[in-house]
Design a protein around this nucleic acid. Sequence first.
RNA 1: GAUUCGUUAGCUCAGCUGGUAGAGCACAUCCCUUUUAAGGAUGGGGUCCUGGGUUCGAACCCCAGACGAAUCACCA
Length: 566
Amino acid sequence: MLSEQEQIRRESLQKIIAYGINPYPAEEFKTTHYSLDILKKYNEDEKVIIAGRLMRRKIQGKASFGTLQDAKGRIQIYLNRDVICPDEDKSMYNDVFKKWLDLGDILGIEGKVFKTMVGEISINVEKIHLLSKSLKPLPQPKKDSEGVTHDAFNDPELRYRRRYVDLVVNDHVKETFIKRSKIINSMRKFLSQKEYIEVETPILQSIPGGAAARPFVTHHNALDVPLYLRIANELYLKRLIVGGFDGVYEFAKDFRNEGMDKTHNPEFTQMEMYVAYKDYHWMMNFTEEMLEFICLEVLGTTNVNIGGEIVSFKKPFKRISMIDSIKEHTGIDISKMSELELRKTCEKLDVATDASMGKGKLIDEIFGEKCESNYIQPTFITDYPVEMSPLCKKHRDNPELTERFELMVNGKELANAYSELNDPIDQKSRFEDQVKLAEKGDDEAMFIDLDFIRALEYGMPPTSGMGIGIDRLVMFLCNQASIQEVLFFPQMKPEKWDTGPNKNEYLELNISETWIQPIYESGYTTKEILLEAKPTAVHQKLNGYRKKNKLDIPPILLEEVQSWYN
RNA sequence: GAUUCGUUAGCUCAGCUGGUAGAGCACAUCCCUUUUAAGGAUGGGGUCCUGGGUUCGAACCCCAGACGAAUCACCA
């Protein structure tokens, strides 16, 4: 059922076609300017051609004002009847513009630049072209002279499901996504300046490796094998290092079949990179250099407002080992503790544990509970317990630790990096430990990837690798608290659509075509629902519907309704 | 997964103690040749998320469900 406004727009569409205008023309429309160009450089009487969406219209007799919104901004247009229609025939203004065009229509405008009496740069329209008719009314937020928005389009569900509307109507949304693009470009520029190679690796993987997470499963028909959407691309990028590239990186969509919240979406973007002959100390320097570069290039400053805190991305960032961090925040030195002592410490600190947790997991819990959220300013946390990191090289000074760092910003993980494990024998035994975890029921334990082991057996140079969450980085640099604000189309439950009546079902009952839609619209959406109702009630409801919608058909007779029930 | 909140016109939202469904913008008609959030006048527009229940009577109370948001838990 169309709303009144939608019906009116469809009627206007018909009138436009009857008048001889194609509402959806095929031809290229050549523009000379963007709105922004005209506003930036005022050239009185300059002839311009622009295209965009009509966002405001104010008709005042023979003159009208409007606002045209294009990809770069908005500009006011002025229409005078006798300028648009210099001849006798005034229908282009009186009918087409005033009656049949609507807010939201895409128009091409030819005219001359001028300033109104109030001094606003505008276009005096000489010719108007309909480029696409809009059949659904847009929300109409208004900004007042103090910059306060009234009637903002701000229902999150509508905004995410109809992002196209959100983008048309909410300027700041577009800005966020433009900035996202700039951040990614800037990172790519930085990596490419180092002469690393941008690569692409499989998204469909038969063994989902490189991280601890539950995968999405799919099936390949021709090969008749299960395939997984990648949870990471780490193992493939390392194979390329084996193959002799010194530096590779990939901007990768990864997929994890886990819970969603304001920092997690089932598909998300990571940039992973691997560089041969480096270690995690080198990678820390590299990471802070890269982030500083991006901030300066995109924002022009290293001071970033994140949720009201000023966070400085000026290098160097603070570095602290996990054990020292725990010492700093709890006053307890856990470095020499046994598993039992750690468990007691957890109890004392009120950190929840369970029996399956090993030494490493216990340490990680303490850190997660007591330390992590304190790191607002960028901080490298280094030297994680070995159980947590099956793909990471053991620490050169302490075999219980690994050469790993995570970069914490605003209490959240932004990046994760290792001195990569390149000892195939050690790697195999770490994978086997994961298999044992899986057998114990850990559904996030890693799969064993024998081909990856084989690759390491051919020899991988010492390498450092790093992954950085692009969505989170964008959230930080755009000061957005929710991942949904930095993804065009965040994951949502599928929308339910009213697909209309199943006609055959009604025809089976000998119901005439003309009454099917009214029956459906009256709430009898299936045969079963209709047959459960009383014929007299249906009869009344249908004639009520006929009257209300002013249907041009005779009222239905009770006998006819009753005949459906026999 | 738990708890809380929300769902009323195209959009943003009111709607008291259960008693005929409201406003602003948008839309339509008429008037108006430079408006600045929205010139003036008049008018049309509703599956009050869905399904049950209570009641003489439900947008409102009760039960179940759908969708969304926040917090927490789980998870990187």
